[in-house]
Design a binder for these strands. Structure first.
Length: 438
DNA sequence: TCTGGGGTCCTAGGACCC
DNA sequence: TCTGGGGTCCTAGGACCC
């Protein structure tokens, strides 16, 4: 059997840890740039705050009800996440039995635990995590990952009845659970597939589980669809991923805090993002062979000929057209200044004078282990000095304050930086922001 | 006025090879 | 009339996840 342990309203729960006055009060957390609502407490949900909608659209409900609002504080969430995951590893007794799936959830391999004890074990996990970290979690258990996710979802839907734990041991329990779940609530079924399924008369997870594999192969993304059907039948088709593997691409993208019109600012932004991406690159000891950048022009309500855009165009803002290009480096590198040079060169190609931009991003790909170029006899000595410099900068930025040391190309004022007006303190990772108790 | 960010996997199709 | 077959590698794009 497999369990999924998922933190309840994770970001809100983290904020509440240091604000006990907000227990049982409505809370929401905003995305970067204070753009969207990305976490909400049960109390906020009951007041009608929807998930993933723009802040300004929910603002009237938030202000009317005095809902507490926070900008996202990833230093804090990352640290609390680590504590939750370490607790799970201790409970499992074997680190390889825990697969960290995202910042707020992990799969656990329960093989070896007698079925009669699984309910108690799941409740024990929940109680221990809450006691040790202060974070409330839900636990779903089933024969496959997809069914475990489904169980977890049902446990969350009615926390009073379930006690935040649901176990689907028998086929009968699994059938009932699938009959209660609509296809759009399944793990692996997004908007596009859900619409397709419903148009063919398949509305519940149970109905989907009874479709032939060949049908899934031709209509739901090939092997992906076949695996989904098998998982619903309780045949594990997705294995536990034990080791943390290196990323295959690294991206950094941000909305600007205000529209940007000059190439100078655009280059500063891209240099800043590349610096961040290069840090991530060096952390996993990789070097990048390809640098891509993209910039997103602010869409105009009227096109150049003065004609108003159609409603469909306006609604598709999420996929606002971006302009992108890439270049292959002469040799893979993890050195920030080389990456900055490549990326700002690409901006020269993309920038159009007179246009306004709202977002930019960089992507490092063609990643190879940095060791493959380390100690290369044919690279000049200066290269090794650069490597040492990077290492030193990373150490300073890690132990001191972010961006204590940075490249001049990143700019000094950064007027374009995102807004984060409501961020809480980094209570657990910065000495100067430690919580004081008198 | 104001709509996040960072990933993954899979497939189709083109280039190229013998 | 009739224009191979099989393999690899790469990229773009679509779908999904939290």
């Amino acid at each position: 059997m497999t369990a999924i342990v998922d933190c309840n309203s994770f970001y809100c729960s983290c904020e509440r840890l240091f604000r006990p006055d907000l227990r049982d009060k409505p809370v929401v957390v905003l995305s970067n740039n204070d753009g969207c609502i990305i976490s909400r407490s049960d109390e906020a949900r009951k007041l009608g705050v929807e998930m993933a909608i723009p802040y300004f659209q929910a603002r009237h409900i938030i202000e009317k009800n005095g809902i507490a609002v926070f900008s996202s504080n990833y230093h804090l969430y990352g640290d609390i996440s680590y504590r939750v995951m370490e607790t799970l590893r201790l409970l499992a007794g074997d680190r390889s039995k825990v697969e960290v799936y995202s910042v707020d959830e992990a799969f656990m391999d329960l093989d070896g635990i007698p079925e009669a004890e699984i309910h108690d074990y799941a409740r024990h996990i929940r109680a221990t995590v809450e006691q040790w970290t202060g974070i409330s979690v839900s636990v779903g258990v089933a024969p496959s990952k997809t069914l475990a996710k489904l169980a977890n979802r049902l446990a969350k839907e009615d926390k009073n009845a379930s006690g935040c734990v649901m176990v689907l041991l028998t086929q009968e329990e699994q059938r009932l659970a699938m009959q209660r779940t609509r296809v759009d609530g399944l793990w692996g079924v997004g908007r596009a597939y859900a619409a397709k399924l419903v148009s063919q008369g398949i509305t519940s997870a149970w109905e989907l589980s009874n479709m032939p594999e060949e049908w899934a192969h031709s209509h739901m993304g090939g092997v992906t669809g076949v695996r989904l059907i098998r998982e619903l039948k309780g045949q594990p088709a997705l294995s536990m991923e034990e080791e943390l593997t290196d990323k295959r691409m690294i991206t950094t993208t941000r909305m600007f805090g205000r529209p940007v019109t000059t190439i100078k600012e655009l280059k500063e932004a891209v240099a800043t993002y590349i610096s961040r991406a290069a840090e991530k690159l060096r952390r996993q000891q990789s070097a990048a062979g390809v640098v891509s950048v993209f910039i997103v022009p602010k869409e105009q309500l009227a096109s150049a000929d003065g004609q108003l855009k159609s409603t469909a165009d306006l609604l598709s803002f999420r996929r606002s057209p971006s302009v992108s290009t890439h270049c292959v480096l002469p040799h893979p590198t993890s050195l920030t200044h080389e990456l900055i040079k490549a990326a700002t060169g690409l901006i020269d190609q993309l920038f159009e004078n007179g246009r306004t931009y709202k977002k930019a991003g960089v992507l490092l790909s063609g990643l190879v282990p940095d060791s493959s170029i380390q100690g290369n006899l044919f690279v000049p000595k200066a290269e090794n000095q650069h490597r040492f410099l990077m290492h030193t900068i990373d150490n300073i930025n890690f132990s001191m304050r972010d961006d204590s040391v940075k490249f001049g190309a990143s700019g000094l004022t950064k007027d374009w930086k995102m807004r984060q007006e409501l961020r809480s303190k980094r209570h657990t990772t910065r000495w100067e922001e430690l919580k004081e108790v008198r």
